[in-house]
Design a protein around this nucleic acid. Structure first.
Lengths: 144, 144
DNA sequence: TTTGTACGTCAATAATGTTGACCTATCGAC
DNA sequence: GTCGATAGGTCAACATTATTGACGTACAAA
C-alpha cells in the first residue's frame, strides 16, 4: 500500500482533504455572509446548541480560541438574541450560554446545509464508504 | 440508516469533519509559524510544486482567492527565495512560478507532516476505511 | 492603432486570530 | 474577615487571510 510517506497517494489524500473541506464549508459560508456572520458565529451557535448552558470558558476550550477572539462574535450573537446568557446556579461568576429559539432555528438551518451535503455524499459513496470515512476521520483525531 | 437530514449521525459526522480537519492542520501550522509563515504560504508552495510553471492567474483559480489576497504571501515567498518567477515563453505578461530547491524542501517538509499523519491514521483505520474515506471525500466534492 | 489581457499596487475594510495587561465581581480557603 | 484564586470582560497592539473597486504598466491580439 504505502511505500513512502510522501507518496503520490498520500499527497493526493491530503489534497482531497483540503478541497473537500473547502467544498463542505462554502455553502454555509454564503448563508452566514447573508446574515453578516462568519464561521466563528456558526461554531458558537453549534457548540452552544450542542452543550446547552455551557460556560464561556468551556466554549473557549472546545473552540480552541482565546477569550478575545470569542468576545466580539459572541457579543454579536447575544445582541442579535440568538444566544441567551444567565448566571451559573452554583457560581455567579460563570455565564451559562444557551441558544434562543431563533438561535436554534438559525443553527438548524446552517447545520442542515452541511448534513444535507453529507447525506448526499454518503448516499452517493455508499454505506461502506461512509463507515470507512468515519473510521478514518476518527483515526485522524486519534493520531493527531 | 438516515431518517432525517439533521439526524444525530449526520451531525456527528459534520462535527467529526470539523475536528479532524483542525487536527490535520494544527501541526503544519506550528512549523509554518516557526518560519513566520501561514497556511496560505503552504498552499502556494504546495500548488506551485504540484504544477511547476503555473501562472499567477491559474494559481488564483486553484486557491480560489483574489490577486490581492495572494500578492503579499507570494511576494514573501519570492523574497525568501522559495518561489522562482520567470516570464512566460509565449506571453511575456505571464509570470510562471516554480519552487526553488529550498522551496521544494520546505514544501516536502510541510506536506510530509500531513502525509505522515494520514499514513498513521489510515494504518490505524485499515485499508477499507481508507478506501471508503477517499470515496466519501470525492463524493463530498462531487455533490458540492 | 486600438482593444483586451496579465499582473501589480493602492485603498479601505473585514473576519478571525494572537499576546499581554488590567479590572470587577465572585468564590474558596484559612 | 482577609487574602488569593478564578470567571469574564476590556484595552491595546498586532497578524493573517480574505473581500471589493480602481488604476497603472507591459504585453498581446485584432
Amino acid at each position: 500500500m504505502i511505500d513512502q510517506n510522501n507518496s503520490k497517494e498520500l499527497r493526493a489524500a491530503a489534497e482531497l482533504f483540503f478541497f473537500a473541506y473547502r467544498a463542505f464549508t462554502s455553502r454555509p459560508d454564503q448563508l452566514l455572509a447573508e446574515r453578516g456572520l462568519g464561521r466563528v458565529h456558526h461554531r458558537i451557535l453549534y457548540f452552544v446548541g450542542r452543550h446547552p448552558r455551557i460556560a464561556v470558558s468551556a466554549l473557549l476550550g472546545v473552540l480552541g480560541v482565546s477569550k478575545q477572539a470569542l468576545n466580539a462574535p459572541l457579543r454579536q450573537l447575544i445582541e442579535m438574541q440568538l444566544v441567551a446568557v444567565e448566571a451559573g446556579e452554583h457560581d455567579r461568576r460563570v455565564k451559562q450560554l444557551s441558544l434562543t429559539g431563533s438561535g436554534q432555528q438559525l443553527e438548524d438551518e446552517l447545520t442542515s446545509i452541511q448534513t444535507q451535503h453529507l447525506a448526499a455524499a454518503f448516499g452517493k459513496a455508499g454505506i461502506e464508504a461512509e463507515a470507512g470515512w468515519r473510521q478514518a476521520m476518527q483515526a485522524i483525531l486519534d493520531t493527531a
